[in-house]
Design a protein around this nucleic acid. Sequence first.
DNA 1: CTACACCCATGACCTGGTTTAAGAAAGAGC
DNA 2: GCTCTTTCTTAAACCAGGTCATGGGTGTAG
Lengths: 206, 206
Amino acid sequence: MSPIDNTTKTATSQPLLDHFNKLIPLNQSERELVNAKFHPHLFLKKQFALQHGDVCQYFDFIVRGCLRLYKVDEKGVYHILQFATENHWISDLSSFHKRTKSGFDIDALEDTVVLRITYHDLIDLYVKAPKFDRIFRVLLENHFMQQQDRIGQLFSSTAEERYQSFLETYPHLLNRLSQVQIAAYLGVTPEFLSRIRGRIAKNDSR
Amino acid sequence: MSPIDNTTKTATSQPLLDHFNKLIPLNQSERELVNAKFHPHLFLKKQFALQHGDVCQYFDFIVRGCLRLYKVDEKGVYHILQFATENHWISDLSSFHKRTKSGFDIDALEDTVVLRITYHDLIDLYVKAPKFDRIFRVLLENHFMQQQDRIGQLFSSTAEERYQSFLETYPHLLNRLSQVQIAAYLGVTPEFLSRIRGRIAKNDSR
DNA sequence: CTACACCCATGACCTGGTTTAAGAAAGAGC
DNA sequence: GCTCTTTCTTAAACCAGGTCATGGGTGTAG
């Protein structure tokens, strides 16, 4: 049972309603559908939202906190594909849409409150309000573009360039994440990230 | 003017109609919409379907031939994100959907026939037949998953592992592409790919 | 105050992949 | 048939980044 009761529920959905309104304004019945279909859920730090091998059942919108989507390879190395903070979405979309076992994990880097919708409720939402078909197409497009940029970066940039671009794109995350997490996102070892930072600090100081 | 005249047009659309039917069966009026909205186009080898700096105007379905989607980095190195052959789709979806300048190029590795739809015709198609909203969401999902797999690979596999997995996933492409193209897809130099092949041949022979 | 855990930095050495260069092989144009 | 361009291979020097080991800093629980 979620630790957040029904009286606070409408208040909790507000950030999500705002988020949708920014994309395409919703009418009253659509807002009610959102309230009915999305349920708040709290994750304590280190709790899993998805474990590999399971089918991803939820599409989560972050109200407060931070989750990460990552893969653990055969050698036990962590590779973070995505951080999600306030007003962003997270899910293994492949597993979620195809109803197949996920190869990824999602867990909480901080205590985090999400609004989540199940696969079947989302389908139902599409049927009852086709506007959401379009809204979620746009969300999918945004995720797609983000991924495309990352592939471009992984191909053609050095770790230092990727770190610089991380600093520009997510300045608010720098002090919120440990360097272990950032390194796993950049695709390097923490040791090497440390050296990069040393190099940059030296160049900046003179 | 496309070198393919109207009498052959219905015949040309057949592979696309088959493709849609496999996802979700179409009715007569939807088939007619497909015929009206998608136009055949021929690319000779080396011709561009998209040049970086332009907004991507088309979503292309390959009837025959092979296109590649790639990026040229600051040092002039080619990075191929996607090959598209018969019955597959290609486009810079970011540029296409957001109407922003593309950072990618698409060109023909062989003489290629595509069926293409413009952005505005696709929007019109969504309005006239919402079934396509769903069909293209599925297509987007498939592309998304493919990208996700590639990110996973770029992160955690060596070039040799990536080559082996390329062989398994696209065995039909091996003899159709030069090693320069395959290397640009794997993200290594042709020289190093050659070494990988040498190594594998040696191991296989004993 | 101490002990333990975790995070970050640094250095010595190792490896996967690049660079450069050179030559062999195979088409494609004439 | 020959030349020209492109494709593939091989090898040596080099570099980005990984591995392993060490030590210091900073909580935080007892």
